[in-house]
Design a protein around this nucleic acid. Structure first.
Lengths: 194, 194
DNA sequence: TCGATTATGGAACGATCATTAAATAATATC
DNA sequence: GATATTATTTAATGATCGTTCCATAATCGA
């Protein structure tokens, strides 16, 4: 029919995703996306219509990160220790980084979703992936008698996911010396499951 | 000495605060601030040097909101019910709003603090005000035997504050039909205190 | 090989960005 | 009332914003 695309869509969206992740939605310019992806302006706009379109596709691409966290939850170890590893990992990545960037879904929830219902839906889809992974882990913990069964796994999963999002906010203002505080929050969250 | 200021600094900073709150830091332009404050560009820049300076002062002004939440915690009622009112109030304001804006401190934590340590310090100061108010409330609850004393009030306050920040993230992607989910999170958070 | 169709890269669009310069106005001290 | 100092207003700065246009290139089915 016509000339085929020369660029690898996954590579382009990964580059866009990294840019939005590092600089935020409003903080990312079309020039930033051209530089990051290597594409010409025309190609970018022909493929994704506008900045918002690029952002939405980059956010969809980000879903694989949430799946990565779910995969980690399924690795060997007790369910509670897997949940601890999830939360400590989230905290440690940014506390140890020279440039903090948090989580693109969380960042987009706060910066964009408040004013854009369509992005809110996309972010919610991302949130659901992790929440279901947590729920699955909690169910395993309940079966093993490690987590209380007085509350259903779905409710406990929401509770843990909420704590995870809290950690993302607190980590963004925290320094290395605050690691102990964040650890006590993780401790209390896990204690609430027993 | 010289010509006195004609503008009321509190009014100007309130207007700037509202603008940053509603549109975000990067989403707010100098023109937006001129329109909101009624000042000329020159006056704004003479008084606050640049956009970042205006933002910092607006963020300082926002501290009174955190103090307002603390005041509410001190109103009549059992400590646990006061904490519930705090969290439900936070959720309800945005779920019922046509335009969600969340919390300026939380928004700034995510959008700005990750990349600006000075703003991180400012936001942390705001966070500390509410966290200490929560701690005070928890201590009252412990004295009344309503909240467990097996963990010190400071730790439990961090745990509750973390949940509050989680709610701010979740609320930004939530609709009116998600109120029940958020309520169960609040329930679980309070159950963890008993 | 031709015509239809789509991709590409770069130039160009008007609008807006944050910031500054300059001219005028108002006050305090002397 | 003169002078120094600061506030206010308006215009203008160069840079960058998101987006579009256009000429060229590459591939398809015919």
């Amino acid at each position: 029919m016509a000339r085929p695309r020369e660029f690898d869509e996954d590579r382009v969206l990964d580059a866009a995703m990294e840019t939005f992740w590092r600089k935020g939605y409003e903080g990312t310019s079309a020039q930033d996306l051209v530089d990051a992806t290597g594409l010409g302006r025309g190609s970018l706009y022909a493929a994704y219509a506008n900045k918002q379109g690029i952002f939405e596709q980059a956010l969809r691409r980000y879903h694989k990160r949430a799946q990565g966290h779910v995969d980690q939850l399924r690795e060997p170890g007790s369910p509670v220790e897997r949940l601890r590893a999830l939360m400590e990992g989230i905290v440690d990545v940014d506390l140890g980084a020279s440039e903090k960037r948090g989580c693109l879904a969380t960042n987009s929830a706060i910066e964009v979703a408040n004013r854009d219902p369509h992005v809110a839906d996309l972010v919610r889809g991302n949130f659901d992936i992790l929440t279901r992974g947590i729920e699955e882990t909690i169910r395993r913990g309940q079966d093993a008698g490690e987590i209380r069964s007085t509350t259903d796994a779905e409710t406990l999963a929401l509770f843990v996911f909420n704590a995870v999002q809290g950690l993302r906010v607190l980590t963004s203002t925290a320094g290395a010396k605050d690691r102990a505080k964040l650890t006590t929050i993780i401790d209390q969250t896990l204690i609430a499951l027993t």
